[in-house]
Design a protein around this nucleic acid. Structure first.
Lengths: 353, 353
DNA sequence: CTGAAAGCGCTTACAG
DNA sequence: CTGAAAGCGCTTACAG
């Protein structure tokens, strides 16, 4: 017997109610909602009408149970409010239109440690709410990735690398190297770097690339010139942190005359710091988020949209072919020159307006 | 008989497998995972160990079906990449820690018309994946809201108002009025407005408030001074649109000497336009997104974080008490004076550093 | 083109 | 503290 409060009652219209009203079996109702062609047009219309008038729609949970697949993929990201992520997302969403899948976003919130981050990611994956998972900017030690293999769930990594999972990323070492080398080769005497908390592979790689460029040019690496902001909110990937870091650079005894910045978002703060201080040095960021073009920030471009698009393809392929070989795509960041480096008077073949 | 490919097999460890391995019934396994206290410590530990080693976790779909509730709420938002939304989200997430619920984000993508927007929202709601829905900046005509009542699903509206649904919003008319009046009372001769596509209630209200302030001050309303950018991407709520609009204002024959801007995001573009043009007029935005403080933009502040937090409380209350009276909370935006209006030399009691 | 029935993996009174 | 069993709302061979 179905006894519910008024409110719940209306919610619980189910396939049996529709079948009864339409004078058919539940199998037929199900066929209509699954676009099965083996239903007479008349019956189909009748069922559709009844369903519409009663506000019926198959319960996703029941479908998921019966079908054993969910037709949805979940995108897991630690920091949502982030231009970088937004462009990755855009690429995924557009690509998604080619598939009959839904996209759901899980924002990992309030993790204080890598362990907690891992737990939260695993928690989402274990519940089995999706057929596959795209993890964007989830940075975990290799041992954690290894252990995640046990879920045997289709996963694609974006902005991260682990041998056992499909991934799409950018060569951060190369990008940092290119940017730093450009500044050196343009005649800069002292190149500082704006960095952030070194918990993630990408940031470590960028520091690595920066150092290597200096070494390759016969410069001394001065750890004191790798500068962070004061607070570690969001691991230092904020305008504020970039602002503080640039202020330190401008007042640094070595008097840096140029700067490679680990991310565009920090570079935006750095740009403002320079305006406020009335001093300007060339700066190159990393990412090429939309606002960078707008503000004339030179940067190492990541093809974020394409990365999102490609990641989705990989994930779908993995869902359909679980045993396919793991594949990694690593893009080379592209140096985009804009006004934040024009004083260098460099050849501007690659420059954009 | 369970016959699956290797890949699927591992996925399908279920409560029966655990029960068998632990030598108990599935009821006991279920109790352990539902934190039911009526399980002996020894049995509990045994089950937990077995589950851990086999990588078991209750399937959310099966739980949802059996429980008839999902313990999750879904947040629906048309435009994710938006500072305004981010702060609302932060308020919700922090509040969520008080409840035993998960938060899931659905990003409505690629809608071209109000109908499509409505369909997409309804589609998500109908699937029954959550116990309640928070709709942020979903702007629909009243008739659509009426018809959505038929789902009898707990819903809270943020940044939108409809009589039949709980809501949290800001008085846009008042906010626009306050900003415009401030400019007039500070001695501005000609106040322009940067506007956007008028599809949403908030933007219409802001235009309304702007006009009223002019009228109340005995000024003529000149429709030609209500200016939009050139492209309608995101209904014109972009830096680019704000930039273009401000360029028009600076070249306007009426020579506006101040500006009220419908959103901070547009105001950021306007600020840059003024820098590029080498002309500056006082400007007041709307929202007070984080970067505004950073850039010294005066603005009408919305208490976004609190709005998110309060919206979540309302939604939870609605889930628990479906028949409770509908409640609306409307905040009064607060005028925050920063450097973008300092030339007005106003008393700065309310100013922030 | 349609229906009867088994099964998806859980939860939850009920009984003990 | 524990188990047997009904039920959640669907899908999908299977049979006709």
């Amino acid at each position: 017997v179905r006894v519910r409060v008024a409110y719940k009652t209306a919610l619980s219209i189910n396939i049996y109610d529709i079948a009864k009203s339409a004078g058919v079996s539940i199998a037929t109702v199900s066929r209509v909602f699954n676009n099965n062609t083996n239903v007479s047009p008349k019956t189909r219309q009748k069922i559709l009408d009844v369903a519409e008038s009663m506000g019926y729609h198959p319960r996703a949970f029941a479908q998921g149970l019966a079908r054993r697949n969910t037709k949805t993929i979940i995108l897991i990201v630690p920091i949502l409010s982030n231009y970088y992520f937004m462009e990755i997302l855009a690429g995924m969403q557009d690509k998604l239109l080619e598939y009959d899948y839904d996209l759901n976003i899980y924002n990992i919130k309030g993790f204080e440690s890598v362990e907690e981050l891992r737990h939260q990611v695993e928690y989402v994956m274990k519940k089995g709410l999706a057929d596959g998972y795209a993890l964007v900017s989830v940075h975990l030690p290799e041992s954690d990735w290894e252990s995640m293999l046990r879920f045997r769930t289709p996963v694609v990594l974006v902005d991260e690398f682990s041998p056992k999972f499909d991934s799409v990323s950018v060569d951060s070492i190369e990008g940092a190297y290119t940017a730093t080398k450009f500044l050196i080769d343009s005649g800069c005497r002292c190149v500082a770097m704006i960095s952030a908390v070194e918990t993630s592979k990408p940031i470590r790689d960028r520091i690595h690339g920066y150092k290597r460029a200096l070494e390759d040019s016969g410069r001394l690496v001065d750890a004191d010139l790798i500068i962070c902001g004061d607070d570690t909110y969001r691991d230092g990937f904020t305008e504020q942190a970039g602002y503080a870091a640039m202020m330190k650079i401008l007042n640094h005894p070595s008097k840096p005359d140029s700067c490679f910045c680990a991310s565009d978002i920090q570079a935006l703060g750095a740009l403002k710091a320079m305006r406020d201080a009335g001093k300007e040095i060339p700066i190159i960021g990393f990412d090429d988020i939309q606002i960078s073009r707008f503000l004339g920030l030179s940067t190492m471009r990541q093809p974020m949209y394409e990365m999102g698009s490609m990641a989705l393809d990989k994930l779908m392929d993995r869902i359909e072919n679980p045993n396919r070989m793991v594949s990694h795509t690593v893009f080379s960041p592209e140096l985009i020159l804009r006004t934040s480096t024009t004083v260098l008077n460099q050849a501007t073949e690659t420059a954009q307006p």
